[in-house]
Design a protein around this nucleic acid. Structure first.
Lengths: 248, 248
DNA sequence: GGATGTGTTGCACTGTGCGCAACACGCGTG
DNA sequence: CACGCGTGTTGCGCACAGTGCAACACATCC
């Protein structure tokens, strides 16, 4: 729709990764140096980026202000957050809250234990549908037409040896998750990470989100995580109830 | 430099205020409905905005993720935050950390007490130089050339009866603040709010930031705030020391 | 039935954002 | 010191992106 805006946002994403030099930005955007510079200046003007003393550019302070405002507008996150914090405290694992947003499954919240072993997920980023348990827990309970909509055109890219790479196998996995009551990621994205996830329902009873517990396999393998399943289910129930859901 | 990007960011700011309908956005931007819609869709695509069930648009989840990344890049904020939290706990007031960024004084951090009496400041937004004590505390210690740079073209707009509206009077106020060791905002922006602020120094001894305590006059008048001055000074010293400053 | 607001699309015009080139500047290095 | 390298700035001309507009389908509400 809008090329320059798209580029600008691309720059923001770039700076979110790590501070960059102007020429660096120009190269990644595959554009002229002056163009990148003009873009950066616009962003700096708005407070979305800032120039570091060493000449590189990073995200600006305005970002934080925006996020604070954003959080106030996110009922789901606001409701879920305290529950995630508790779950993280109980399990010692990184926990995620995921939801469907604009045709993607995105992480809505993420709480890491204090001794955080760096999980690479990022709030607001689309979740890989066919590997993340948080995605599976939602997809498993979606009506088939909405599921098809999300899955159409989805590439079952292999990320590790255990990645599910065909739609048929994936649908079978979803069915298993539905029956089981929780979804699994058995090192399907990063082979050294596994997670389990359960669905969250809203007032109408529809599954709209999921909660997941993630851990390094070396610290907590799948069986170990399963031991926390009751806590996980309790958290999901709590959030669902806060969303207005009443057990049937 | 870039009109469409500027517009896009304007939309983001708009949504940060409160969720808006498309036609609403179009009107504010003074642009055609379809243009606004196209813009919104680009933002939604990127996760920076989202469509609410009722058709309005608000900020997107990606905002939060970006802010988390941003915070990791902000040494000053990262360093100052815990001290602000403590100061807020001690005083029961809203506290701010302000710094110079891109030719403006901006709030870098803000901590509100749990029973938050809604102060309207926003992180990343430029601070009104001639009213906010947080700005004065910094300006009072700036070399005159840098001060002139910031002040040139600044309009001393009257916001309340006590607003200082001339450059001369303002410079006198700064001198007083410098001598006194702390700066004051005596209801100069909103007449029912007053604050005091003290400077923060970096490793080179330059004043680069300030900490302020803000309160409703009805709850804490200036004299009452002054009682917390030792705590405020201690906080500023702590942050300065964390920044590498050593007392002379 | 009409009124209102959203979302979409095709088209034509215009202006804006782009690439480019040239220059000033600061910094470190051989 | 001259040189290379990267940043920052500016003027220019062109192409095309982005805009405005109009017309449509579609919901919802009264």
């Amino acid at each position: 729709m809008s090329q320059s805006v798209r580029r600008a946002l691309e720059v923001v994403e770039l700076l979110a990764g790590t501070p960059r030099s102007p020429s660096d930005v120009a190269e990644v955007l595959d554009t002229h140096r002056s163009t990148a510079l003009r873009l950066l200046q616009t962003l700096v003007d708005a407070g979305y980026a800032r120039r570091l003393p060493d000449g590189r550019y990073s995200l600006g302070y305005r970002m934080i202000g925006l996020a604070q405002r954003a959080q106030e507008q996110f009922d789901l996150r606001a409701i879920g957050h305290p529950h995630l914090v508790e779950l993280t405290a109980q399990t010692g694992c990184t926990t995620h809250l995921a939801a469907i947003d604009n045709g993607h499954v995105v992480y809505v919240d993420k709480v890491e234990p204090t001794d955080s072993p760096r999980i690479l997920s990022q709030i607001g980023r689309p979740v890989p549908l066919h590997t993340a348990s948080a995605a599976k827990a939602i997809l498993a309970h979606l009506p088939s037409d909405r599921l098809d909509l999300l899955l159409d055109g989805w590439a079952f890219t292999r990320h590790s040896v255990s990645t599910i790479t065909t739609r048929e196998a994936f649908l079978a996995d979803l069915a298993a998750a539905r029956e089981r009551g929780y979804a699994i990621d058995d090192g399907e994205y990063e082979d050294y990470i596994n997670c389990i996830a359960v669905p969250v329902r809203d007032a109408t009873g529809d599954v709209v989100a999921s909660v997941s517990v993630t851990a390094l396999r070396a610290l907590r393998d799948l069986d170990s995580l399963r031991a926390d399943l009751p806590r996980l289910l309790q958290t999901a129930t709590d959030i669902s109830r806060d969303l207005g859901w009443v057990a049937t």
